[in-house]
Amino acid sequence: MTGETARREAAEHLALTLVGAGMQRMGARALAAFLFSDKESLTAGDLADELGVSAGSVSGAVKMIVQMGLIERIHVAGSRREHFRMRDNAWTTLYSRQHSVVDDVLTAVEKGVEAVGPGLALERLAYMRDFYTFLLNEAPMLVERFEQQRRGGSRP
């Protein structure tokens, strides 16, 4: 198996894994293309060529990945095409955006705890509230420890 073949198979495997985790197929394939590319930026046309699809079919995928906070639009001097690149710290950015969803869930659960009386429903809701409160309190420290570890050079 050539290096290029292995790279493409690994990218497709990652994309299929992301699809299995609930991501839309084209978005997963486009994200994998960004992750496996050695180019600083990609255009919709670059993605279409890499994935063997039309440029139009990747536009929704790019929009979704931008909204997730994993890629960003950049200006490339001399080019009239839109260029996108992986964000610095893309995964902590994604986590931060998911953090706000957890905040919303926690707020809804709090209303549920207030709405029910003693019993099984209260136990379930209180457990959920306590779990998400714990996560929200611990996660920033985990992200900071991760960033410190990365700055210390202990990566593969």
Rank of each mutant, 00 (worst) to 15 (best):
R7Y: 04
R8Q: 12
R8E: 14
E9P: 09
E9A: 12
A11T: 04
E12W: 05
E12R: 06
E12V: 06
L14D: 05
L14T: 06
L14S: 07
A15R: 01
A15I: 03
L16R: 10
T17F: 03
T17W: 02
T17G: 04
T17L: 11
T17R: 09
L18A: 06
V19Q: 00
G20N: 13
M23H: 02
M23Y: 00
M23C: 03
Q24R: 15
Q24H: 14
M26Y: 04
M26I: 08
A28H: 00
R29L: 09
L31M: 09
L31K: 01
A32K: 00
A32G: 02
A33C: 06
L35R: 01
L35A: 06
L35V: 02
S37N: 04
E40W: 14
A44T: 12
A44V: 12
G45E: 12
D46M: 01
A48E: 08
D49K: 11
E50D: 15
V53Q: 04
V53I: 15
S54P: 10
A55K: 12
A55P: 15
A55N: 12
S57G: 13
V58I: 09
V58D: 00
S59M: 08
S59I: 11
G60H: 11
V62D: 00
M64A: 10
I65R: 00
V66S: 04
V66H: 02
Q67M: 01
Q67H: 04
M68D: 09
G69A: 07
G69S: 05
G69Q: 03
G69L: 01
I71C: 00
R73K: 15
I74T: 03
V76D: 08
V76S: 07
V76N: 10
A77S: 13
S79M: 07
S79E: 10
S79N: 05
R80M: 11
R80V: 08
R80K: 15
R81S: 12
E82M: 10
E82K: 11
F84M: 02
F84Q: 02
R85W: 06
R85H: 03
M86R: 12
M86L: 15
R87Y: 02
D88G: 08
A90T: 00
A90C: 02
W91P: 08
T92Y: 04
S96H: 10
R97A: 00
R97S: 01
R97C: 00
H99D: 10
V101P: 01
V102R: 01
D103N: 12
D104Y: 13
D104L: 13
L106K: 09
T107G: 05
A108F: 06
V109M: 04
E110G: 09
E110R: 09
E110C: 07
K111E: 15
E114K: 09
A115P: 08
A115F: 07
P118E: 10
P118C: 04
G119D: 11
L120S: 14
L120F: 15
L120Q: 14
A121I: 10
L122T: 11
L122H: 13
L122P: 07
E123Q: 15
R124C: 12
L125H: 09
A126F: 08
Y127F: 14
M128R: 11
